[in-house]
Amino acid sequence: MNIVVCVKQVPDTATERKLRSDDKTLDRDAADGVVNELDEYAVEEALRLKEAHGGEVTVLSMGPAKATETIRKALAMGADKAVHLSDDALRGSDALSTSYALAETLKKIGFDLVILGSESTDARTGVLAAMLAERLGTPQLTLANKVEVDGSAIAIQRVTDYGYDKVEASLPAVVSVVEKINEPRYPSFKGIMAAKKKPVETLAIGDAEISADQVGLASAWSEVVDFAAAPPRAAGTVVKDEGDGGVKAAEFLASKKFV
């Protein structure tokens, strides 16, 4: 089975994240880049499926040159090889154009199963798996907390508010996973050393036949017009209960349109 895992480098959630003042995109130099946490679960699930069914795990990442660190981490965990889609023209791409670029790359490199984390900690759109499936013309099985593959059939448990749905499809397919699905392994030192020697193919947009006018900041369907730092938390209002505490509380909630 040819499994492709999409991983994204995101700014460390433990540090302050910033937008650039010039073009209002994410300032990737302001914070350390780490692998998007949910993508570690995606890599782990891919490795488990490979261990159970055989095949090969390819890491696919779209991002600047610095994203190589994230790719190495996934390779150190045990993935076999990687494709790094990296081009200045991709900078500022929104979810629609990212899904277009990744879909074109996936068509080029081939796949039986694509696995993603269900969202990234920086953009948090959570729509990429659905968009990719639509563009690739394959079934989408999203928010999985369990994945089972049997021959060309795939079944997942899809997490819902009331429990889970059982969703079945046939390969090729796109799956997104939630953090309840497994416990990602820590890379071994041997794995870290081996990752150095694993093949990483770097593609520019031309190599994947991605047209420049459909990606990048200029083609984005949404635009950040302005942004401001969140105001520091102001001191709250203290209401002394003189028999009218309930009324005051209700008035406050009404003023915020909660009641």
Binding site: Y186, F189, I192
Partner: peptide, 13 residues
């Protein structure tokens, strides 16, 4: 770089 990756791994653990 590999020793630093080992450090990140152990620290995260």
């Amino acid at each position: 770089a590999e020793q630093e990756e080992l450090r990140r791994t152990v620290r995260a653990l």
